[in-house]
Design a protein around this nucleic acid. Structure first.
Length: 690
RNA sequence: UGCGGUGUAGUUCAACGGUAGAACAGCGGUCUCAUAAACCGCUAGAUGGAGGUUCAAUUCCUCCCACCGCGACCA
């Protein structure tokens, strides 16, 4: 029986519309899956959506939908995108689109829970225990806020909810805990002993150092009263499973773990060789948590978890809506060939590192490598075969008595040199591919194209045709070019399924390219006399100026429409504040003009600046503000600022802050971006604002 | 502040301790089968800085600088 291969993308959280990140991960998985199928592995490729949790529950309420309707919409959008980019099953892409709302997934996730609960930790303690989860709770949100989710407000020691701008309550809720702290040694040993378990190496180091930093037990349930939309905890209807536990288990429930559906691919069959592809932002969940859950349930841990990088814009900045540098998947689909996009993302990003994605980069890459490179080689080859040999692939053998003629034309008579170049490129490609070094794999193949272009330039077929003695030389040139194209089509098929199929059929071949193992290729297997098919351009040259201006226009439209869609499906929680304050309320706030006398950084604090401010009082005020990331301290000295003068003093970083500096809080996708309040006119220090 | 990583041509990246290379871009030329393509040639660098080990350092070691990631701290 042949080897099995199971590859997964993360299941994408059904709270936001599809974007480049989803597309990228899925393309990579698709390329690998097609490659493995070609190599003869029984391959299973899984993607899908993670459809539970509070965010989804809330989005549904806002849209007047049931949660089920809500996730149907988002997973429908994702499927539509996958279909557009031919990543779906219909087009030879994923085998399973997993959805965590499937009943069989409920059964499987609960089975996993039970298996975990049945066992004990490596230190002999119960894997799951019930205790009180203490945390900061926002009642209007009905949600516990983690450190990333709450904000500290100056003048208060209590964390505030950023949405409702009110203090959080410290609440203890009964919850199930997973005994993660007992798995520290197990995880370390596992990850340190197997260099292939977490890749690339830099990410592996990160995970190791995170584990070494100590692990805390993990709350793995929420009370149904606060989060209803989820998989119920087995035998306890008051609780719902923590969404990550629910989501991660999809990788095995999809195979049939803990459920007995007919169509299941088979857990034992596929779990033996699994590769999880993840973004670097969710690596921890897929290593620390997932490995522990599996081990606790007595299941083997995966073969490889591979974290890839993120796409930045052409200047290396993070993509964000306010920067306006987002690559829209619909724009991509509308203006570019799917295969060109696939080639670009595989070729331009060194897998595992961050990459830069600009429409111009894509155009340049496609024009240089695809139009001028592979496409042009195919075009000139087929054109010559049509013109010079009536569209029949000639015999590539040169008789020994004609060797001299071939040499005179600058052609290696027996062709061994080219054969070894092509064979070597194939071997190198396969080796690189197995290591997920896609960029280098492709690079090594492109050397072959240059080599064949050179063969054509050197031997000059347009002159050979004029000399009857050079008939065999010409034949050999044409045959070699054509045979190389056959190899390239097969080799590159996983990366560019449509284009390579087209080239392959233009050669005149009709067998199924997706089932040919490149490792089995032998030079010379292209039969002479093959009638080439109709010649069609495979990679049209992209007019950069034209396409860029078209994108410019259409992106203005899509920005609007995607915003509409976004608010429709993922509502921003907006508080309509109808509470007016009276003038007396306002006058309670003492706003005064101050002049910055001293402004300096505080050692070991990334964000805090220490100010001494003259408010016209006998002593200058010391005020701390989180502005260090946005302003150079020196530039603020002498500046007039607005200060809340009667704010309750608060200690920060061991220093007392006696007031607050007013700034507009401009939100940006890259984070807050404040601007200090200032005056156009000259104002006296100490003046009151009212 | 702890751990890890990166720093090489205009750009993206290579170089078991052994003469710093490739691709793209740029400039010049050749050619016409081809998608203004291809082919040939040229240009380009004190390998972030300072030390050290060595016959020999981009590579190994130490320190410093800059940027990135993870965490801590802080918001």
């Amino acid at each position: 029986m042949s080897e099995t291969f199971y590859i997964t993308t993360p299941i994408y959280y059904a709270n936001s519309l599809p974007h480049l990140g989803h597309l990228y991960t899925t393309i990579v998985a698709d390329v690998v899956a097609r490659h493995k199928r070609q190599r003869g592995s029984e391959t299973l490729f899984l993607t899908g959506t993670d459809e539970h949790g509070l965010n989804i529950q809330r989005a549904a309420e806002k849209n007047d939908r049931t949660p089920q309707e809500q996730v149907d919409v988002i997973s429908g959008e994702l499927k539509r995108m996958f279909h557009d980019f031919r990543l779906d099953g219909e087009n030879g892409g994923y085998d399973i689109f997993m959805r965590t709302t499937e009943p069989f997934h409920y059964a499987g996730a609960q089975h996993l829970w039970r298996e975990i609960a049945k066992g004990v930790s490596p230190k002999g303690n119960p894997n799951i225990y019930k205790a009180f989860y203490r945390g900061w709770f926002c009642a209007p949100c009905a949600e516990f806020k983690t450190e990333e989710q709450y904000v500290m407000v100056e003048g208060s020691d209590i964390p505030h909810c950023p949405i409702h701008e009110r203090p959080l309550d410290q609440v203890a809720e009964e919850s199930y805990f997973f005994n993660l702290s007992d798995y520290q040694d197990f995880l370390l040993e596992m990850i340190e002993n197997d260099p292939n378990l977490v890749k690339p190496e830099a990410r592996r180091n990160e995970v190791i150092s995170f584990i070494k930093g100590g692990l805390q037990d993990l709350s793995i349930s929420r009370q149904k009263s606060s989060v209803a939309w989820g998989v119920p905890v087995p035998d306890d209807d008051d609780h719902v499973m923590y969404v990550w536990m629910d989501a991660l288990s999809n990788y095995i429930t999809a195979l049939g773990f803990g459920n007995d559906r007919e169509s299941a691919p088979g857990f034992d069959k596929y779990w033996s060789n699994v590769t999880h592809l993840v973004g670097k932002d969710i690596l921890r969940f897929h290593t620390v948590y997932w490995f522990s859950f599996l081990h606790a349930a007595g299941l083997p841990i995966p073969g490889t978890v591979y974290a890839h990088g993120m796409w930045l814009d052409a200047d290396g900045r993070k993509m964000g809506k306010t920067l306006g540098n987002v690559i829209e998947v619909d724009v991509l689909h509308q203006h570019f060939q799917v295969d060109a996009i696939r080639y670009f993302v595989m070729r331009d990003m060194v897998f595992g590192q961050d990459g830069k994605f600009g429409y111009e980069n894509l155009i340049e890459r496609a024009n240089a490598d695809l139009a001028s490179g592979l496409g042009n080689l195919a075009s000139r080859t087929f054109s010559m075969i049509t013109k010079y040999r009536d569209g029949l692939v000639p015999d590539g053998k040169i008789a020994e008595e004609n060797y001299l003629n071939a040499r005179r034309a600058g052609l290696d008579p027996d062709g061994q040199e080219l054969v070894s170049v092509v064979t070597h490129a194939r071997d190198e490609f396969l080796r690189r591919f197995e290591n997920f070094e896609f960029s280098q794999a492709l690079e090594s193949v492109w050397a072959v194209i240059a080599r064949v272009d050179k063969m054509i330039s050197d031997s000059k077929p347009w002159e050979l045709i004029k000399d009857e003695n050079q008939a065999e030389t010409l034949n050999a040139v044409l045959y070699r070019a054509c045979e190389t194209l056959r190899w390239l089509s097969i080799l590159l098929h996983p990366v560019m399924p449509e284009a390579t199929k087209s080239i392959y059929s233009q050669i005149g071949l009709s067998d199924d390219i997706s089932k040919i193992d490149p490792a089995d290729l032998n030079w010379g297997e292209l039969p002479s006399g093959t009638k080439i098919g109709e010649t069609v351009g495979v990679f049209p040259r992209i007019d950069k100026n034209k396409v860029m201006s078209e994108i410019q226009e259409s992106s203005q439209e899509t920005v609007v429409s995607s915003q509409e869609l976004d608010t429709a499906s993922v509502p921003v929680v907006e508080e309509v504040i109808e509470n007016f304050i009276t003038i007396d309320d306002f006058l309670k706030v003492e706003l005064r003009v101050g002049e910055v006398k001293v402004c300096e950084r505080i050692p070991n604090a990334d964000k805090l600046l220490r100010f001494e401010i003259d408010l016209g009082e006998p002593e200058h005020r010391q005020i701390l503000a989180g502005l260090a990331e946005y302003y150079e301290p020196e530039t603020l000295i002498g500046r007039k600022v607005v200060v809340v003068a009667n704010l309750k003093p608060r200690k920060m970083r061991g220093l007392e802050s006696q007031g607050m500096i007013c700034a507009a809080s401009l939100e940006d996708d890259s984070g807050p971006n404040p601007a200090l309040a200032a005056f156009l006119e000259d104002v006296a220090v100490g003046a009151r604002l009212k």
